[in-house]
């Protein structure tokens, strides 16, 4: 392993997120701040070139907010996001708009993510127009080429979104995200609205495009088997916090955090003869408005001890690249 001093530009991670926080203020009718929803709290990870980071967790765990904060679609409360060493959060709006071409997003809902009144070719050209790239003929050619790249036909350029199925629209969404030659794609549940047989088509497409364009993905999803397939490392989130992060195989073979274990055991397996010990968690996810003190998971944790109720566990590395926030792992 190289020492820190020797790290050159190339070996620096493409994106480094440190201490990311997003607290939404709760205001009363008179505009007085009454408290904060801790949507994202102290999230940190690194993303290398051509790597995929999976972010998993249940609804309200802050995984989507994390993705949107990095793109500054939501302004962060504090923290850093170093893209090639430059802090995205410190950039002025104007400078950041230029950086946007390097970080693009693929959205969950293929039905509402494309303007229904716009021909799909135009939708793909839109980001190029916004950034004033190429002339109009080059843009059309590029849009057709991108359509081909994502497995659609160039002659579908003039069609409207409603003429396409969900899977095809998701392909259009990907083509649009690629129009600016980004390096990082933040994919927010890109396949969860699709049919099973279409999901695999889109996942394969995303893998091919990653190879072809040297892309890095932040893949946000709740379906663990999909995330496992596509990710190199996975971060598990619960109530705004990263509770465990590890390389994919490590996470699935040696999950450490009780929540990760429960999550893994609740994935339905498409094999009726596969029997396993199921950890069925008691109760509901607490409201992020009013999260429990101490370890946020202690209200549902089957192994909780007294310390968990009072003291917040620290997120620390326990094995190579394997970090966890739990009092029981010491």
């Amino acid at each position: 392993m190289q020492s820190l001093l020797q790290k050159t530009n190339d070996e620096r991670p493409l994106l480094e997120v440190k201490g990311l926080k997003k607290h939404f203020p709760i205001t009363s009718a008179l505009g007085k701040v009454q408290g904060y929803v801790q949507a994202v709290n102290n999230v940190e990870f690194t993303l290398n070139k051509r790597e995929t980071l999976g972010l998993v967790g249940e609804s309200g765990c802050g995984k989507s907010t994390t993705g949107r904060t990095i793109l500054r679609l939501i302004e962060p409360t504090s923290g850093q996001a170093l893209y090639k060493g430059k802090d995205l959060f410190q950039l002025k709006q104007k400078d950041f708009q230029k950086m946007r071409s390097k970080l693009q997003m693929v959205f969950q809902d293929p039905h509402s993510s494309i303007n229904p009144k716009q021909r799909i070719g135009r939708a793909i050209e839109e980001p190029m127009k916004i950034h004033k790239l190429y002339d109009s003929k080059e843009r059309s050619e590029r849009a057709m080429e991108l359509l081909n790249k994502v497995g659609l036909r160039g002659d579908q350029y003039y069609r409207y979104p409603h003429e396409f199925s969900g899977g095809q629209r998701q392909r259009i969404g990907i083509a649009r995200a690629l129009a600016l030659n980004p390096e990082i794609l933040i994919c927010d549940e890109p396949v969860s609205a699709l049919d099973v047989s279409i999901q695999s088509q889109v996942i394969n497409l995303m893998e091919e495009l990653q190879e072809q364009f040297d892309l890095s993905y932040i893949f946000i999803a709740h379906d663990l088997s999909v995330v496992r397939h596509i990710s190199d490392q996975i971060g598990v989130m619960y109530l705004g916090e990263l509770v465990e992060k590890a390389p994919t195989d490590e996470l699935f073979s040696h999950p450490l955090h009780p929540y990760t274990k429960a999550l893994l055991s609740s994935i339905p397996v498409a094999n009726p003869e596969f029997k396993r010990e199921k950890i069925v968690l008691k109760g509901d996810i607490p409201s992020p408005l009013n999260p429990p003190a101490g370890c946020k998971f202690h209200t549902r944790c089957p192994y909780a001890i007294k310390r968990c109720k009072n003291e917040e566990p620290v997120f620390k590395e326990v094995a190579k690249n394997h970090s966890v926030a739990c009092h029981l792992i010491d």
Partner: peptide, 24 residues
């Protein structure tokens, strides 16, 4: 979502209002 997508592409407010919201 497509309005959010436009923001993520860096579109200006005027463009979003007149090219995307108005026709709808």
């Amino acid at each position: 979502t497509y309005i959010e997508a436009l923001k993520s592409q860096g579109a200006s407010g005027i463009r979003i209002i007149w090219v995307h919201i108005a026709p709808n």
